[in-house]
Amino acid sequence: MSHLKYMLLVSRQGKVRLMKWYAPLSSKAKNKIMSDLTSLVLSRKPKMCNIIDYSDHKVVYRRYASLYFICGISSDIDNELLTLEIIHRYVETMDTYFGNVCELDIIFNFSKAYDILNEMIMCDGSIAETSKKDILTNVSMMDSIENNDNLDRVLS
């Protein structure tokens, strides 16, 4: 079982591109986590371990091109390797959806990036769906509903 505390997507330039909080935290605490982890993760060498101890929990991160996917997990409940798999599955799903996803795709389609994440992980941080096919089917369905709405608006 996995219960993420948060997921952050940070660029190599230190810009936070996406953030999702699964645990109740104050704005101050969120800002502290973002600023601490951005500098901590970006300063790490490529061959260093992807799991680090931070505050009262663990942080698992993985780098894809110019983006760092950072997850906060509970040391006693979560499995670090499973978290790495979750990150990888998320990237794979976005890759299929966008077709070789890049930072620019996420900036300009951030709502889709959140939709895909919401299909994968529930609001309490546990995994909702692991099937890439099902996630993409659901997101495509959302897209077609949205397109139909737009078409109705055009035809009305």
């Binding site: 660029s11 190599r12 330039q13 490529p46 780098r63 091109a65 110019s66 930072e103 900036i107």
Partner: peptide, 22 residues
């Protein structure tokens, strides 16, 4: 133009920074 992590290198990296700039 790309390293083992898929990160762009050299001129391509500068272009990427310009692309993703706000």
């Amino acid at each position: 133009t790309v390293n083992e992590f898929g990160e762009k290198l050299g001129i391509e990296r500068i272009k990427e920074i310009l692309d993703t700039h706000a």
